[in-house]
């Protein structure tokens, strides 16, 4: 990533006034990055940004209230920061935002799918549009566009929408259409197949709640009703019904708030296509209220307000 040095310099300048700066560094193998908490000057050297900077670091912000926090954001991550600001869940003056032009992040599942398995990665190089991965002594070439996250194809905001320091040149959204619109395809399926689809997908959920904890907007944290006995929304049974219900709770609690960062699906160790539910919710919210979450810090989420006469709701028709 060509702006990496510039970003490091920018952080180095700001660090004395901050308790911590959250960025990314190299992960346990060449295919993975990991969130990186910079507290000291020497931590800055390990910062790395690029196609593996998948984590939405905004998730950590509500837990760090009261501290002076710097955060490096991709365009999509910045929407989560805005949404958190909109809902007064973080204080603007406590957060210093570092933005950079993002050219897309990879989807680990797609790489795994393309290569069969990625347990033994020796190296990974990304040159222009090609990803070269060394796997158990063999070299594999993949087109970058084949392994980019779906959200990157329809990305409208590659540059942070809000930032205190922006490194590099702002880029314009790429209008690639190579990613399949999985929601559109899904909505062509007959009802009974959809019902069966979710039962099958939800069956393998292990209720680890990684989806919830990785979600920047799931701010109830330790007080989630998924684990509450009173009210008793969910049982501890290993049943599709309870697992599915949880995803509906998650989706509905995010209605009008979800910025579609995709962390729920990325975090899921079972690769359950959770984002589909959020995409559908966002699509309807957008159609009904012409609203997108996390774009305008001053906006009110649509389900927290109303109009006496709703332009797009014709409930009297029924």
């Amino acid at each position: 990533m060509k702006y990496q040095q510039e970003l490091k310099d920018s952080i180095r300048k700001a660090l004395p006034g901050l308790d911590v700066v959250i960025a990314w560094s190299a992960g346990y193998d060449p295919l993975h990055a990991t969130p990186h908490f910079i507290r000291r000057e020497e931590d800055i050297d390990r910062l790395e940004i690029g196609p593996f900077s998948v984590h939405n670091l905004a998730t950590y912000l509500p837990g760090l209230r009261g501290k002076k926090v710097g955060i490096v954001v991709k365009g999509c991550d910045s929407r989560s920061v805005i949404e958190l600001l909109q809902e007064n869940l973080i204080n603007r003056e406590e957060v210093t935002i570092f933005g950079f032009p993002c050219t897309g992040v990879v989807d680990q599942t797609k790489i795994r799918k393309a290569l069969g398995h990625t347990g033994k990665v020796d190296f990974c190089q990304i040159a222009s549009q090609t990803v070269v991965i060394g796997l158990g002594g063999e070299e594999h070439k993949l087109r970058l566009s084949k392994v980019l996250a779906d959200k990157c194809f329809s990305c409208q905001y590659p540059n942070a929408l809000i930032s205190d320091h922006f490194v590099g040149e702002k880029i314009s959204p790429s209008v690639q259409t190579e990613g399949d619109d999985d929601l559109e395809a899904f909505e062509k399926m007959p009802m009974d197949e959809r019902f069966a689809f979710w039962q099958k997908e939800m069956d393998r959920c292990i209720r680890c709640y990684a989806c919830r904890n990785a979600c920047p907007m799931c701010v109830c944290r330790d007080h989630c009703l998924a684990e509450s006995r009173d009210p008793h929304w969910l049982s501890q049974e290993d049943s599709v019904r309870d697992k599915w219900m949880f995803q509906l709770i998650h989706a509905y609690h995010l209605a009008g708030r979800c910025t579609e960062c995709g962390e729920c699906q990325r975090a899921c160790p079972m690769d359950i296509p959770l984002l589909l539910l959020k995409k559908k919710m966002n699509k309807e919210i957008k159609e009904l209220f012409q609203y997108e979450a996390g774009v305008d810090p001053e906006a009110t989420p649509p389900l927290l307000s109303f109009k006496m006469e709703e332009e797009n709701i014709n409930e009297r028709e029924w």
């Binding site: 959809r194 979710w198 509906l248 989706a251 509905y252 919710m281 309807e284």
Partner: peptide, 11 residues
Amino acid sequence: EVLHRFLPILG
């Protein structure tokens, strides 16, 4: 209204 439009995704 949001719910009404959302439910079909579940089948």
